[in-house]
């Protein structure tokens, strides 16, 4: 009797062990990807952060003290201004588009979404190049503006803040529209019907029912656009023509022009901390951390 019982326990223990081994085996399938990400992204960034705090004599904050220089403050404020402006315009343009797309028939919505996905799949550089050509002094936009009599002299549309904002909104807009559309698509139309039935005007129903229900999508869109804009490099560099200095450009300059690893690593740590802080803030506000991480 006792033998049978201990045998049973032994069996159970080995089954548990086997099940655990099985789970570990499954987990190990993710090791190649983890190894790549850990080795190529995480380890160097950890090392970079460490570098920003040490010099020949050991621990130091000198690299960060240098960041108090007003020129860095200007870069930081430009970066935030641009990110805020781009995010705000994306909301103003993206929300109506997603709103209409979510109400259209499946076929029409499909065509609309294709128009949104097309820039998404087109090379970033190609789109920046298109804006460069269109917005330049003798470019198409200025030609049209002059032909139609809106302006006498060509406007300065590129190599400044305006051009950078126009180009960046174009690149970020799909990131705003897609989550908004997904959120609005899942809103039950009966809520709006009920609001109308209870005497709400279309405007009231929109602001009191539709907008609150679309907030998760709006939160996700704002988070993605804002965070991507903060770290953006290519478009501000080309369309800003040296007049718009973003934080990420400062990092590249301090390496390629001054070969200053101390400054570059400190700038990098600051950008990383700001990015993660923004993500944390947004996820607290809207509870969309799952969407951002894509996790279960």
């Amino acid at each position: 009797m006792r033998d049978a019982e201990s045998g049973f326990r032994l069996n159970e223990a080995s089954l548990v062990k086997q099940a655990f081994a099985e789970q570990l085996k499954l987990l190990s399938l993710s090791f190649p990807a983890l190894l790549l990400v850990g080795f190529i992204v995480l380890a160097p960034i950890a090392w970079l952060s460490w570098l920003s705090f040490v010099d020949a004599d050991g621990f130091t904050l000198a690299n960060y003290e240098r960041l108090l220089n007003p020129s860095y403050g200007l870069t930081l404020s430009t970066t935030f201004q641009l990110a805020f402006l781009v995010t705000a315009i994306c909301v103003l343009l993206g929300y109506p588009l997603a709103y209409i797309a979510a109400q259209l028939s499946a076929g029409a919505a499909r065509i609309m979404l294709l128009c949104v996905l097309f820039p998404f799949w087109t090379s970033l550089l190609v789109r920046t190049y298109a804006w460069l050509v269109l917005l330049q002094k003798r470019g198409q936009i200025n030609t049209w503006l002059q032909d139609w009599g809106f302006t006498d002299a060509p406007l300065r549309l590129v190599y400044n803040f305006t051009g950078t904002a126009i180009g960046m909104v174009h690149i970020m807009l799909p990131f705003m529209i897609l989550p908004l559309y997904a959120a609005m698509k899942s809103i039950d139309e009966n809520y709006m019907r009920a609001a109308a039935n209870l005497g709400a005007s279309p405007t009231q129903a929109f602001w009191q029912i539709h907008v609150p229900l679309s907030l998760p999508g709006l939160g996700a869109g704002v988070m993605v656009v804002f965070v991507l804009s903060l770290g953006f490099y290519v478009t501000p560099d080309l369309l800003g023509g040296g007049r718009v200095m973003m934080w990420s450009m400062q990092i590249e300059r301090s390496l390629s022009v001054y070969s200053d690893w101390g400054a570059a690593s400190a700038l990098g740590v600051v950008l990383l901390v700001i990015t993660l802080a923004m993500l944390w803030l947004f996820s607290r506000l809207t509870g969309v951390v799952g969407a951002a991480a894509g996790g279960k």
């Binding site: 992204v41 160097p44 770290g231 490099y233 990420s248 990092i251 390496l255 690593s265 990383l272």
Partner: peptide, 8 residues
């Protein structure tokens, strides 16, 4: 931010 990955 991709610039950070690039530097790393």
């Amino acid at each position: 931010p991709v610039i950070l990955i690039a530097v790393g």
